[in-house]
């Protein structure tokens, strides 16, 4: 089972920042409105918001750690195998014959941290679900290359 780059955890953590800030802000708003004197009590509401934000962020941290530990992939003889998921564990098997095309993608955040991900498309309805995150650019193109070769070796036969 191959692991992905640990740095991907920072990316996932950052993804949790906005929701936690947002929920913190909502908490502030709600506390302020519920109290008798909405405008005057902003200062009282601040700690509540902070606590909520921290809590959400903390959950994000835990989730990220577990998520990283749960993720693994394997380039097998005739299929790509992916294991992932924290609350719901998902194992996916994608036979190379079924691969339609393969993308290497690097969004701005990933580029800042020098990472990228590979997306494997099949004709199946869940095709776009199959993606391997947290790869160094070289690794990503490598994986893409490898999958492409494997997919190419198996005769094109997409069964649609």
């Amino acid at each position: 089972m191959e692991r992905i780059h640990p740095r991907v955890r920072i990316l996932w953590l950052l993804r949790g920042v906005f929701p936690s800030l947002f929920l913190g802000a909502v908490a502030i708003g709600v506390t302020a409105v519920l109290s008798s004197n909405p405008l005057g009590n902003i200062s009282e509401a601040l700690p509540v918001g902070g606590a909520v934000a921290l809590l959400v962020f903390g959950l994000g941290v835990v989730h990220t750690l577990f998520r990283y530990r749960a993720f693994g992939y394997e380039v097998q003889d005739d299929a790509l195998y992916i294991e992932r998921g924290v609350l719901t564990k998902v194992n996916t098997v994608v036979p190379y014959v079924r691969v339609q095309h393969i993308d290497t993608q690097r969004n701005p955040f990933e580029r800042v941290f020098g990472l990228g991900h590979v997306v494997v498309y099949t004709a199946g309805s869940r095709g776009a679900d199959v993606s391997v995150p947290g790869l160094l650019p070289g690794q990503a193109t490598d994986l893409q290359q490898r999958l492409r070769t494997l997919a190419g070796e198996s005769e094109p036969d997409d069964a649609v």
């Binding site: 998902v90 194992n91 099949t122």
Partner: peptide, 16 residues
Amino acid sequence: YYRVQTVIEKRSFFQR
């Protein structure tokens, strides 16, 4: 069998 695209095995928190 010939029409299979991917095979997915999942276990939700409750299923586990």
